[in-house]
Amino acid sequence: MYNVSGGIKAWQGKTAIGPQDLGLDLFSGRESAEEIFKVAYSLEGGLCDFYLSMGEKARGSRVKSLFLKLSQIEVKHQLALLKAYNKIAEVEVTRDEFETMVETKAMEGGLTTDQYLELFGSDPDSQTEVISLAMSIEAQALDLYQRAGARLGQSEAGNILHGIADEEKNHLASLGKLMNEI
């Protein structure tokens, strides 16, 4: 047992928001491993679309290209999920085939685009604020996958969700590096 000295006020990393059951309706616990990958793929897709639409609204060329870069990162995450899906699926599918099987209900972290914009009132023309927003979304996604994984416990689905959560942790670290580069 370790006490976080200073509590949440001393925590300087990204935080997640919302009640403990936020977004958990995306994972009822009855999904197969294949279905979990489909949900995760759709969440990454929602975030990719979000970055693309934010890029269209942004005024500066640097921020526009940053949004494009972030959307491309999400596509990479999607491809990794498709690869993981094909490893366990009975029938291997192409990306186009897979996309017809998923439905985008929300973005990563289980919130809709409008909810994110409302919660993180970021300036879409500031590079640091854009990356900070992206980090907040990744933190939210990490939080969702961990909570969902913890709820499903030591099951195949639970282990897959924890695996995706570990990936999200890496994504968060990558965005931290990107922040240091600008």
Binding site: I8, K14, A16, A150
Partner: peptide, 24 residues
Amino acid sequence: TDEIIILDVRQPREYQRGHIPGAM
């Protein structure tokens, strides 16, 4: 992520306002 438990013992409203990602 499944090797450590992050336990938030505050009230739900405080948790809702901001918590360490993955905290129970």
